[in-house]
Amino acid sequence: MKFIFKFFEPNKIFLITSKAPKYVMALFVIVISIGLLEALIFSPEDYKQSHSVRIMYVHVPAAWISLGIFSSMTFLSLSGYIFKNKNFFLIAKSLAPSGFVFNVIALVTGSIWGKPTWGTWWAWDARITSMLILALFYLMYLVAWRIYEDKDYVLKVTSIITLMGIINVPIIKYSVDWWNTLHQPASINVLSKSSIHSSMLFPLLIMTAAFALFSLLIFLMKYNTELIKIKNKGLDRL
């Protein structure tokens, strides 16, 4: 435990996190270039929906990343609450904006895809509604950090928001299996064979990597800001 606390000294972390963004940025540009080329040009069109399948290469990774970030935020907030470590809360706080942005991207691209495919912009089915609820939880989380001046209080409020929101995450995942939904079930299964052709799976995975790198980049920038704020207040420890 002592080692961990030493590792969490803001000055030492800042040495790493202040240099990292430019490397992450470079890597992100490379990966997104490959991803976009694959997704928009080299990958084949779909047999049924033809070119509108390309929306999926943005929609699915964005949805995955927003779910992943919310889960990490919950894990960090709860660990922070249990072990009384404020650094965990700061990491969670810095992760939130990119998670929210990807959640909105997933909803908007889904809507754009839904119009030509389903014939409607919006449907109140279980998958779409639960995804909207996740966006609302993200929004509550972000707003809560701005509302409360009292630091101890804000940590509790944001932890409770993540704790309540996390219930929604498995609901989003399994909504398409539990209930009749307009949204199709998952195409990619870890255990069984995926129902997406490998020529389409490949750009999807590259785009996921690109979005993950983008989230990492935004996280590092946000986190650096938080560390600078602490330094300026003259606080040596978190």
């Binding site: 084949p44 069109e45 779909d46 047999y47 049924k48 929906q49 399948v53 999926m56 495919t117 389903w118 014939g119 409607t120 449907a123 307009l182 199709q184 079930p185 998952a186 195409s187 129902s195 997406i196 052709h197 020529s199 389409m200």
Partner: peptide
């Protein structure tokens, strides 16, 4: 409303 299924593949494969 048309319901899309979870199958994605190029036309040749189909």
């Amino acid at each position: 409303l048309a319901k899309h299924d979870e199958n994605y593949m190029p036309p040749e494969v189909n």
